[in-house]
Simulated scan of single mutants.
Amino acid sequence: MGYYIRVEPDVKIFVEDVNPAGQKTILFIHGWPANHKLFEYQFNQLPGLGYRCIGIDIRGFGKSDKPYIGYSYDRIADDIYTIINTLKLENITLVGHSVGGAISIRYMARHNGHNVSKLALLGAAAPSFTKLPNFPYGHTKEETNQLIQGTLSNRPKMLQGFGDLFFFQYTSAPFSDWFFNLGLEAAGYSTAAVLISLRDENLFGDLGKIQVPTLILHGVHDLVCPYPLALAMNQGIKSSKLVPMEKSGHGLFWEEHEKVNQELNQFIG
């Protein structure tokens, strides 16, 4: 079922709540530039294994409200905090893909892992999406600036080009159209604003604050968040386990969805 939760006086977040009677709860945070529908292939299977699966559309994306401002990692992490408290969720597994993984890490650090017992990071955009002098991985600021400019000048063309980088395995034309349309459900300005956060924020100081068991699933062919990011997260998060996804790019939630679901089920147990 779907409903809205108010996180600010003028901002409501859309929530998809599948199998509310499930014994264990998984809260999914999607990546840029999509929405909670990204996890369709997890929602197809995991509720049948007894899980309550909750997907949210972060502000500016999907069915959620689209304020003009408020797209920092801190602000979106605070939205997650409000959702967890409003729904009275406890002992949950927090799952984040791409920038959703980065936001999940910020949530764990900023809110001391409030009511989260396990963390799973899927192709997470952390600890830094941007290359730094001491971290020569990820993308240059100029490359991200080109995405921002493409978003503001010709968003459909930008989304099409980004989709071509997203998956390692072949995608059919209907599937590519589906993925493309997820991006169009966002606002253009929120799409650009989250890119600014991706470009400018880093999470090196957050990794050591994570105190729960953490599963890192990362495509070895990922062109969006290169595999060395996973190695850095594995090194920085104690009690973390890294599983290389040998047949995936950035879209491991679909490209190896059976393995992703199996690993999540085994991890949450």
Score class of each variant (00 low, 15 high):
residue 239 S to H: 13
residue 260 V to R: 01
residue 266 Q to M: 13
residue 12 K to V: 08
residue 73 Y to A: 13
residue 15 V to E: 06
residue 206 D to M: 04
residue 182 L to Q: 07
residue 231 L to M: 12
residue 101 G to Y: 09
residue 181 N to D: 15
residue 36 H to I: 00
residue 3 Y to Q: 03
residue 40 E to I: 02
residue 41 Y to L: 14
residue 241 K to D: 00
residue 52 R to A: 12
residue 50 G to V: 04
residue 217 L to P: 00
residue 248 S to H: 03
residue 239 S to Y: 09
residue 93 T to E: 12
residue 232 A to C: 07
residue 30 H to M: 00
residue 207 L to A: 06
residue 22 G to T: 07
residue 5 I to F: 08
residue 130 T to S: 13
residue 187 A to F: 09
residue 200 D to E: 12
residue 86 T to R: 04
residue 65 D to Y: 09
residue 126 A to S: 14
residue 73 Y to H: 11
residue 136 P to M: 09
residue 117 S to I: 06
residue 77 A to G: 10
residue 5 I to H: 07
residue 247 K to W: 06
residue 45 Q to R: 14
residue 176 S to M: 13
residue 266 Q to I: 15
residue 62 G to S: 05
residue 137 Y to W: 12
residue 255 E to C: 00
residue 23 Q to F: 07
residue 39 F to H: 05
residue 21 A to K: 15
residue 242 L to G: 08
residue 52 R to I: 09
residue 242 L to N: 03
residue 104 S to Q: 07
residue 3 Y to L: 08
residue 38 L to D: 04
residue 8 E to W: 09
residue 162 F to R: 10
residue 43 F to T: 14
residue 21 A to S: 15
residue 71 Y to H: 04
residue 97 H to W: 13
residue 35 N to L: 06
residue 181 N to M: 12
residue 142 E to Q: 10
residue 144 T to F: 13
residue 268 I to C: 11
residue 228 P to C: 03
residue 60 G to H: 01
residue 171 T to G: 05
residue 264 L to N: 00
residue 209 K to Q: 13
residue 116 V to F: 10
residue 175 F to I: 01
residue 27 L to D: 04
residue 179 F to E: 02
residue 101 G to Q: 07
residue 62 G to N: 03
residue 215 L to V: 05
residue 82 T to H: 10
residue 224 V to K: 04
residue 186 A to K: 06
residue 57 D to K: 00
residue 188 G to D: 11
residue 94 L to Y: 06
residue 15 V to A: 09
residue 50 G to M: 02
residue 250 H to T: 12
residue 238 K to V: 04
residue 12 K to R: 14
residue 188 G to Y: 01
residue 31 G to N: 10
residue 59 R to V: 07
residue 20 P to G: 10
residue 79 D to R: 06
residue 61 F to H: 06
residue 30 H to V: 01
residue 173 A to D: 03
residue 50 G to R: 04
residue 166 F to K: 00
residue 36 H to T: 11
residue 236 G to K: 05
residue 173 A to P: 00
residue 22 G to N: 04
residue 141 K to Q: 14
residue 140 T to G: 09
residue 233 M to E: 14
residue 137 Y to T: 06
residue 181 N to L: 10
residue 66 K to H: 11
residue 191 T to V: 02
residue 180 F to C: 03
residue 173 A to L: 11
residue 133 P to F: 07
